[in-house]
Design a protein around this nucleic acid. Structure first.
Lengths: 232, 232
DNA sequence: TTCTGTCAACTAACATGCCAGTTGGAGGCG
DNA sequence: CGCCTCCAACTGGCATGTTAGTTGACAGAA
């Protein structure tokens, strides 16, 4: 079932066609528009997008090295399935980087950084009160990205995202649980408090706790969506 | 100046042509056979390798997303230059992951893992005695990869390598300093001792110290090889 | 009914032709 | 003498034709 949205999407972007197609397919995979295990036919994609096979091949090649698609030589290419060990791996990497980041930030934080984090948390509170869970999700992501960016290493936020692509995709499957946003907010507060207190150890601990619960909530997904997971 | 070794190299590998070319170019860039800033001409590469432009384009695209080449659209593609902030960033990421790994490993280590690490360190001692610095270099890399692998997450070692490509490349420029291998060996010993003692905190500290050395030795390279660094 | 061998249709991989954007230098103008 | 303009050659991006490998279904034998 072709997705006409794709063709519109690549027209809105600019830059080389290959990169636009890469971005479009990547987004489609990450938000489960393209389901794990789904077979991607080059010819069909070209027809839907109205382009030739060259830029599509380039895009698929990059997605392959991202681990988002599996290319079976001379045969087919399909959207990669989840693997629990891989998800645990990404969780480990993500936690390693984010803990290191918050430790550094907690030690060196400026007043301005504190202000921006506080402002973000205020926003989170408002969004929860309004039950705008989509908005909360985005503010949540931004909170983490702010901390990563405050390390002074601009590419760290990109690297952290790149190393947890599967995690981000699996997160889309999580149903909004009653009370979970409030819990997350409380965890964010304890992170911010440790940063405010310039207590690196406590900040690292708080981030570790916060991230650790994500993988716990992801594990049961294997039962709910067995087709999305690699038979192992 | 074409490198005839390349053509031979890709013949020895197997798999899709694009991947072989990617691997060949990647190696050439990482060991400075292709110098930072050097312009890569697609046509010339195709002629040297005896292939068409398709697989070369694919390879260059992947190298671009690795950050090893910069593609200037419609103009040229060149081997990326070093950037000190980027190198510091990679050092930060590398340290974050490797510290997290050794903390986990120190807590959970088995006797077998201890044996393999000890054996590796013995080898390092022998190689230093024989003044085989190339061999020591490889044993050094293996020591770190062993620890990363002992996390139980097979892809962590690959991820750690992927996130510190520039660091690995810059390392090639370091001249062998008198007494540095012996220092490194001593640092490896303190890491191993902490792992043996099941002391995660000490192990993390030791790894952090050890990795901190590398970036300190890389910083002065900007003076020795100004052409290899991005003008900033 | 089940297993196996064969073959046709489909796929990704590769080669090649074409086009548009960039660049650097030559030549003219101030 | 210096600066600006313009043009030609070269580059990477895209389209398309061709090839080789895989797969799955169908037919025939056990």
């Amino acid at each position: 079932m072709p997705n006409p949205t794709l063709a519109l999407y690549i027209d809105r972007l600019e830059g080389p066609l290959g990169q636009r197609i890469y971005a479009a397919l990547r987004n489609a995979i990450l938000d489960i528009t393209f389901e794990p295990g789904m077979i991607l036919r080059k010819g069909a994609l070209c027809e839907q997008l109205g382009v030739s096979r060259s830029p599509v091949s380039e895009a698929l090649g990059r997605l392959s090295s991202d681990g988002l698609v599996d290319i079976i030589p001379q045969s087919a290419t399909r959207v990669s399935q989840f693997s629990l060990v891989e998800l645990r791996e990404e969780s480990f990497l993500r936690e390693a980087v984010e803990v290191a980041a918050v430790v550094k930030v907690a030690a060196e934080r400026t007043e301005d950084q504190l202000t921006r984090l506080t402002r973000n948390l205020r926003l989170q509170e408002l969004l929860i009160d309004d039950k705008d869970f989509q908005g909360f999700f985005e503010a949540d992501v931004e909170f983490h990205e702010l901390i990563l960016g405050f390390t002074g290493f601009p590419k760290v936020v990109a690297a952290a995202g790149q190393m947890s692509l599967q995690l981000r995709r699996a997160r889309m499957l999580l149903l909004p649980e009653e009370g979970r946003p409030a819990e997350a907010l409380a965890e964010h507060h304890s992170i911010l408090n440790a940063i405010r207190a310039k207590d690196p150890a406590a900040a690292g601990q708080a981030v570790s706790m916060h991230l650790g619960q994500l993988i716990e909530r992801i594990v049961p997904l294997q039962r709910q969506h067995p087709g999305y997971f690699r038979p192992s």
